[in-house]
Computed example of a mutant assay.
Amino acid sequence: MATPLDQTKIDNINQYDAEKRYQYLIKEVVANREIWILTDEHGCVMLNSEDEDCVPVWPNKEFAESWATGDWDHCKAEAISLNKWHSRWSHGLEDDELAVAIFPNQNEEGLVIFPDEFDFELKQQARKSK
């Protein structure tokens, strides 16, 4: 379980560009063995990029919860274990032709990658961390 982030750390991380947020997310997800999504009564919330339907993911509960405002104020942050992500989510997203929106910031900026690429990066980081 991750240590809660203080506001100063959250503010600093929010200044990261999309690539740096991606690197942070990979390290945090592997270290904490969980990835965060937002859910509502219909399941996982989705974003639409120019070309893809995406599932947004965050490295920490605090960042996921910060998106639960406005149209999404009824949503809840939910952790998915890294094992469950590898065993079910990656294949399920691929089968449904969905991409992953990596740690979108409040301006809805973030990298969009395919589930197999994301899975590969997570596994690479896990190998480095051993």
Rank of each mutant, 00 (worst) to 15 (best):
G70Q: 12
N105C: 08
L38M: 13
K123P: 10
S90M: 05
E50T: 06
H86G: 02
A68K: 12
E121V: 00
E78I: 11
G43I: 05
E41I: 09
F120C: 07
H91N: 10
E34A: 06
V57R: 12
I113V: 15
K84A: 09
E78A: 10
S81L: 13
F103V: 00
D73G: 02
K76H: 08
W72D: 14
S66L: 05
N83C: 03
T39N: 02
S66M: 13
E65D: 13
E117D: 14
L98M: 10
E52P: 00
L122V: 08
P115I: 07
A31N: 10
K76I: 12
K84I: 08
H74S: 13
N60M: 10
D119H: 04
W36A: 02
P56R: 06
H42L: 13
K123M: 14
G70K: 06
E97K: 09
W89H: 04
H74R: 04
D95G: 05
S81D: 11
Q106G: 12
D51H: 11
A77M: 03
S90T: 14
W89Q: 00
C54Y: 01
D51R: 12
V112T: 12
F63I: 05
N32I: 04
V100R: 03
L38T: 07
E109G: 03
L98D: 00
V112A: 09
V112H: 11
F120S: 13
V55I: 15
G92F: 01
A79R: 02
E97F: 09
D40P: 01
L93E: 00
C44T: 15
V57C: 10
G43W: 05
D116E: 08
H74I: 14
E52G: 04
D51W: 12
S90C: 10
C75R: 06
K123I: 11
P59R: 08
C44V: 15
S49R: 06
P56Q: 04
A99Y: 00
F103K: 02
W58S: 06
P104K: 03
L47P: 00
